Simulated scan of single mutants.
Amino acid sequence: MSEPAPHDPRAAQRLDWTRAALGDAAAGLERASTDAGFRSYWRTTGAAPSRIVMDSPPDKEDVRPWLRVRDLLEAGGVRVPRVLARDVEAGLLLLEDLGGPTVAQVIDAANADVHMDAAIAQLIRLQSLTLPEDFPAFGEALLQRDAGLFEDWFLHRHLGITLDCEDAERLQLAQRRLMDNALAQARVPTHRDYMPRNLMPVADGPAVLDFQDMVLGPIAYDPVSLLRDAFLSWPEARVEDWLRSYHARAMQVGLPVPAIGDFLRDADWCGVQRHLKILGIFARLHHRDGKPRYLADAPRFIAYLDAVVPKYRELDPLHELLERTVKPAFAKVIS
């Protein structure tokens, strides 16, 4: 039996559009998942096979950047969801249903090598794409915005810290060094959230999701996003083995990776820059958007920073800031 038409105008529009796109007046929708933005995903019910409706309310999230990047990825041989019907003005897409669990939900210590091997192979395809000349780049402005997220949302809003002059100088110096490192790296297509929860374990995959923010960016960024994940942690020795495997395969296909020692440093530094940014994003999701669950993973990022920052004398200002100011305040918040 089909579900009754919802009373919410957007829900009613979504259901009516889905039934028309499928040619099935009895089709229903059930929630499949949400993401950290305004986009939502719905699985069709009724006649098989099921499909996924991606709902991007046009007043909140333009669907066209997602479609543009999807088409570029598919043309380059990267496995992405297939689009079966679209209404760009309404912000509604009908997609193939890739199944329920993401790689993040099925990966474990026993099968991680298999999943990471497939994820690295797909990443190398993505990084090998030739992008249009007008494609956005991971430049100074984007890095400055990322840096501001940590200070504005995690330090000020979440921890209640107002940096004194010395701490402000420490943070600015560390952020400048991280930015300079990112800007000095060879540039390739960069997903910016290439991690297991954005990969689907299909036979010809993994299929890549949440790619709409792709830019031309530093070559170490996506490998470290995959292996020092926002929601999963692995022993550092295993992470280094995977980074070395990625590096060898990237060299084989002619990607512009530096010597292995420099690459491992670049991955570490990109990871630090990313971890600081995500702490800011998670704090913003909690305080601005009413999504508190992401902050539960904040201790993971502090642990990542503890593992990497002390290895580099150039990052001593950040180490001092973390030890003197950030970690004591963070301990009070989570206690």
Rank of each mutant, 00 (worst) to 15 (best):
A137D: 12
R157Q: 13
R51F: 00
L22Y: 12
D134N: 12
P136G: 04
R19K: 13
A12M: 08
K311Q: 11
L295Y: 05
I302Q: 15
D113N: 04
G280V: 15
D204I: 01
I334N: 15
A47N: 04
A110C: 02
F301N: 13
L163R: 08
P299L: 12
A220M: 03
E61C: 05
V272Q: 08
I302N: 09
E169Q: 15
M200A: 06
T130W: 01
D297G: 11
Q122E: 11
P258W: 00
M195G: 06
Y246N: 09
L227P: 01
D289R: 10
L98A: 05
E314G: 07
L84H: 03
V208Y: 01
V88H: 04
E96F: 01
D229Y: 08
S50V: 03
A267I: 01
R176L: 10
A186E: 11
Q212L: 01
P6A: 01
I219F: 05
P136N: 05
G290P: 06
F330M: 15
E140T: 09
A296Y: 01
A303W: 04
A283G: 09
I52A: 05
D222R: 02
A303R: 08
G99C: 04
A298D: 05
A27Q: 07
R244S: 14
G139R: 13
P101F: 03
